[in-house]
Design a protein around this nucleic acid. Structure first.
Lengths: 325, 325
DNA sequence: TATTATGTGTCAATCGTTTGACATATAATT
DNA sequence: AATTATATGTCAAACGATTGACACATAATA
């Protein structure tokens, strides 16, 4: 593959000159510029980013670490992060931990080795930065933050409240909350708190369920949902902590011949595409994923410029009424 | 950040020695090795992959270029590719073209600049390799192949046949095929051929529909589906060319009060997760995405080793019976 | 004893860029 | 005429690894 040197020779100048026209810095004569550009065209020259990054001591790469790619929430998050990153001339190094701590630590090292400009961590919340002696900005999304990382999350508590209030207003008097993950201590836990508080305020009968699922190891919640409904047979409203669970709740209700929304109402969380493709479509709490991604990239850039950035950012959620309520 | 040199100084040896223990090549005394390893620990040394790649003239990066990340088929493909790549010590550079030719070409350049080991292209089929003077192995998935690239696809024609035969065996006599993309000339077009041939062989009344959707610009097919059913009101079987379309077909049938599978049966294509989360669950044609991803990575490796690889690989599909038939 | 194989380690060039420090030439300003 | 900007280029040292070519012991073999 052609190098700067080849181009320089072909154009009859030195590498510095070529580098100058590429990065257009310093003074360059119009004629010289022409010659150089022609040479580049002819040789199909493509600058070597590795050499460039090495020399400049910075890459334009952002590492994204997620526990799961197929999960619609993460797929959406990745998609939004990619768009935003591309708009800022960053490229994406994609890491999938499958929720294994070992892989996560390996990926952190990998990002470090590749000198990424920043890391967006949506995986877990070990005290990464301290542990790994990282001097790379780390943004977490919907995870508890460590010392020195900035955490972005949506207002899970309000989301829980809104979902629950909506169910109660719609006439539900016996509620279940289906949470996704047990024992993981995540911001999403606040959804349950919101649920609990609203139920208590209204004196509504309620029950919270915890899935046995290891974090995202499987996305099959059917048995968990069946069990929940079996335990509370006269339930008339379910607040699921993700649209994925909500979708499966629809299926289980269908098995049990519970009519949605007449006999039972369902509210999901996330507002990912799947909520629009089920029958009926899912009423859900919208997470501002686009904004979350956008802030994440912005914070990485600010952090690189040594600007002060907040430790935590909590974004508002909203209710999207569809057909399950 | 600590460099080889720092480690060498701390351990009282030269950089060559340190490099030797890292890559363990040549002879190294046990004591020396110890000392070096301690020094690395203490300094939290993490080799600079950029320098390493530059020096070795190879990266361990694979570029994945897709038109859409949120689309469940691509999400799954990306996920499988990532797993397989990780297992082979490759990292992933993720590129989302949103089906824009301009972005696609930019991303090809980006991959080239970053000296990726290979490119998995699932986006379109311009004559990339020739156009861009690429000397990087390119594997396409479910796209027509260019000169010099290897194409991996599933047996779309057989898939079309199987879906259609299944509908006919289940008693359908008036079929529609809903294809996803118009005028794109993709391997997936063969699904329609399979459909057509089987219908003709059985003398079954049939109709093929083409979506007006620009390729993946939106994933909303509702109006298209409504229109199709309006044109063939007595349809009793639909073969949708993706599970995403099938899911939306379920929704439309529900609007129109057509009972599935009693009055109308539906078969999808892809067998992505969404097929399991709709109500009813979608009977579909399974694409062996895992195997496709696995072959893609293998071919890239073979290609780097200068081994001969096939020009085309067609993998078998299978029918997964669920609840829409 | 001379020769060869086996360990252990050092030197310095190389990968493809960027960039500060210098030249040199021309034009404009005192 | 001397001084100072303004253009236009060149040189060579980084950046942080890898690696072939050597050097020098020590042990084994002829």
């Amino acid at each position: 593959m052609a190098t700067l040197k080849d181009v320089a020779e072909k154009a009859g100048v030195t590498v510095t000159t070529v580098s100058r026209v590429i990065n257009n810095r310093g003074y360059i004569g119009e004629q010289t510029r022409q010659k150089v550009q022609e040479a580049m065209k002819e040789l199909h020259y493509q600058p070597n980013e590795l050499a460039r990054s090495l020399s400049m001591k910075r890459t334009n790469t952002i590492g994204i670490i997620v526990p799961h790619i197929v999960h619609p929430y993460f797929a959406k998050l990745i998609s939004e992060l990619e768009s935003e990153a591309a708009a800022h001339k960053y490229k994406i190094l994609l890491c999938n931990t499958k929720a294994e701590t070992k892989k996560e630590l390996e990926y952190i090292d990998m990002c470090k080795s590749n000198r990424v400009s920043g890391i967006v961590l949506c995986s877990r919340n070990v005290d990464i930065k301290k542990m790994k002696n990282l001097d790379i900005p780390v943004i977490t999304i919907e995870r508890y933050l460590d010392a020195g990382t900035v955490g972005i999350e949506c207002d899970n508590y309000q989301g829980g409240r809104m979902a629950t209030e909506h169910l109660i207003e719609a006439g539900c008097r016996n509620l279940i909350h289906l949470s996704g993950i047990k024992n993981e201590n995540m911001p999403a836990d606040a959804r349950a708190e919101g649920f609990r508080d609203v139920c208590k305020e209204h004196g509504i009968q309620h029950r919270e369920m915890l899935s046995n699922n290891k974090i995202y190891s499987t996305m099959d919640y059917h048995e968990y949902i069946r069990q929940a409904i079996r335990e509370v047979p006269d339930v008339d409203g379910i607040f699921a902590s993700s649209d994925l669970i909500a979708a499966q709740t629809i299926q289980v209700c269908n098995e049990l011949n519970l009519k949605i929304p007449d006999q039972i109402k369902i509210v999901g969380f996330d507002d990912v595409d799947i909520a629009k493709y089920t029958t009926p479509m899912i009423t859900t709490i919208h997470q501002p994923v686009h904004e979350m991604a956008s802030w994440a990239i912005e914070f990485i850039e600010k952090s690189l410029r040594k600007e002060v950035i907040p430790e935590q950012l909590k974004l508002p959620v909203s209710l999207v009424k569809r057909q399950t309520t």
